[in-house]
């Protein structure tokens, strides 16, 4: 009995010492995943993900709390990059990139309250008190914050129509090789 206890203790002790030495020898700094993810995020702090700003979302994604697909402005592209970073697989087929949208001001309704101007995360709305506001197309990210802030419904988001420069070929529609396209019940 004593011998058994002693020998197992001996093995354990030996392994412990060896591992202790190895741990010191092969020490690795913990990586700053949150910071890296935050660097990838759009940074417009739009809050569409439901977290307070991009850093909150980055922390949630890093801890696995939020899916990599949670950022609508980042779209598929960001989801793929994040999935690669985190080493997870992601199914983007369900993600519909609705195409870029852009805010527009209906001039008759605008009362010049500057609420949209204050809430815009990218300073894309210009205007002053009691004056009709306007949207700078290039700076607008389509985050819809201003749409919610506007008291008179003067701001609406509309999709950006494709031009010859932005048009891309659609994905070919194949009848026979598309993934699970069976009618309900057929798979079972």
């Amino acid at each position: 009995m004593l011998i058994a206890v002693a020998s197992v203790a001996l093995i354990g002790g030996f392994c412990g010492v060896a591992l202790g030495v190895a741990a010191r020898r092969f020490h690795v700094e913990p990586d700053s995943m949150v910071a890296e993810i935050e660097a990838l995020m759009p940074g417009s702090q739009c809050g569409q993900c439901g977290y307070p700003g991009c850093s909150g979302a980055a922390a949630a994604i890093a801890s696995g709390e939020a899916p990599v697909t949670c950022c609508p402005p980042g779209g598929k592209a960001l989801a793929l990059v994040l999935a690669e970073k985190l080493g997870v697989t992601v199914d983007t087929s369900g993600m519909v990139d609705e195409g870029p949208k852009i805010a527009g001001v209906t001039e008759e309704l605008c009362i010049g309250c500057t609420k949209c101007y204050k809430t815009c995360p990218t300073d894309a709305v210009i205007g002053a008190v009691k004056q009709v506001h306007a949207v700078i197309r290039d700076a607008c990210t389509g985050c819809a914050k201003c749409e919610h802030a506007c008291p008179t419904g003067a701001i609406t988001l509309s999709p950006v129509a494709p031009t010859i420069q932005t048009w891309v070929w659609p994905k070919p529609q194949s009848q026979t090789t598309s993934r699970p396209a069976q009618p309900a019940g057929a798979a079972a």
Binding site: P42, G43, S44, Q45, P73, G74, G75, K76, A77, L78, C120, P121, T122, D123, A124, D138, A139, T141, T166, W167, V168, W169, K171
Partner: peptide, 23 residues
């Protein structure tokens, strides 16, 4: 086409980020 527009989006996002930071 999809890759090109993804690249464009990335550039746009960088621009957005800069705008947001400036703000």
């Amino acid at each position: 086409g999809e890759l090109t527009s993804q690249d464009k989006n990335k550039l746009r996002q960088q621009a957005t980020k800069q705008l947001a930071e400036e703000r």
